[in-house]
Nucleic acid binder design. Sequence first.
DNA 1: TGTCTACTTCATGAAGTTTTCACTTTTAAT
DNA 2: ATTAAAAGTGAAAACTTCATGAAGTAGACA
Lengths: 222, 222
Amino acid sequence: MKILIVEDNIKLAENIKQGLMQEGYAVDVISEGLAAERRILINRDEYDLVILDRMLPGKDGVSVCYNWRENEVTIPILMLTALNTTDDKVIGLDAGADDYLAKPFAFKELLARVHALLRRPKQSFPDILTNGDISINTTNRIVKCKNKPVSLTLKEFMVLEYLMRNVNKVVTRDELYSHAWDFADSSFSNTVDVHIKNLRKKINDNAKIIQTIRGVGYKMGL
Amino acid sequence: MKILIVEDNIKLAENIKQGLMQEGYAVDVISEGLAAERRILINRDEYDLVILDRMLPGKDGVSVCYNWRENEVTIPILMLTALNTTDDKVIGLDAGADDYLAKPFAFKELLARVHALLRRPKQSFPDILTNGDISINTTNRIVKCKNKPVSLTLKEFMVLEYLMRNVNKVVTRDELYSHAWDFADSSFSNTVDVHIKNLRKKINDNAKIIQTIRGVGYKMGL
DNA sequence: TGTCTACTTCATGAAGTTTTCACTTTTAAT
DNA sequence: ATTAAAAGTGAAAACTTCATGAAGTAGACA
């Protein structure tokens, strides 16, 4: 397990590095935002985790993080910051960080969070799911079809999202139903069918990206 | 996306539920630890995320969480608590929670963390069974024969799947019937035979990969 | 209060699937 | 070789499933 620390406070960086090395991790430190950005973009598989300070000379942590995620870098990111307001945390997490830790922190807590992040399956979901002509942003719920925005209702979005998270997998009506609706019983209702119909219309599904698997359910795929 | 809130403070639970529902999530609330534990163990795929209070009547959140992880429940867990000491967070994360949020918190932050956790991929194990020239993918239901896709109906697929899961084992008609048909009685019907016939035709079974075991049933094998 | 929107239900027809049935062929035992 | 039981076949009939338009309902919001 190899961890990259991006932190301009050299003393802090060294402390963290020492602690993590004692735990058996390999650790590199980079103190400059742009340099870190480039390093990860060039060599995407070198590190298993990035600990990223929010305040950095040159390019700040949030932009760096955002840029990585834009470029489909999926390495787990733990963001560090001196700021501890809620808005601030939200900005960090929305930029694509997987976790957030406010300074000052106990090393023990950093370690617990590092463990938790490394325990996750690699590759966090990109915020933006794409399939064929269609892309959906699960954060701001913008759906585009051939780069044109399409406005979907809530249920339509949920149905589409579930399909897109299960591309090429056949998904049953019950599955769709139980994921998008509350404690309920889908039997004797064709509401999923109706939403599928409306979805197909809204996304102009001539290419049949949403396929019907007769007797089973639906499948999304090229 | 469906979320389970396990929280005994009904008012708080309802508030969170409302907020999350406005964001388009389907939300259920359970206020008792043991009940939640059972629900998830019984139905592992229903929810995409659990928001778990640490303090619960009956069985506390940490034990519940620990027990789920012991039983290979992989759903992302966001733990809530009134305690905000570092040790406390560590206990939560080490019990297998993926994230930790101290009360009181801003809804916005909860939401950001929920987004971050849901961005993680589900592990799906594509299940491909192969025998001779034939392979079936039970995830996307694609069947190939000599690498050419073959389209099967529901019953045909279920019969073939059962045979392929029991390669080289003799399978009775009754077994096939009860696997592919609900509550039914196979006697006096040759519908299994007919499906076998159609299957053989569709997969071009010159090599006799589906053998008839006279007086008993069928067997699949090279 | 009415109006709007999202969602659900219902009725329908068309397309597809499954079952049945009468018949033929194969098999194994005598 | 004969025979009876078992298995295979093709086609028609019975049944399911799905897409769809339209009507109905519920809740938000002014």
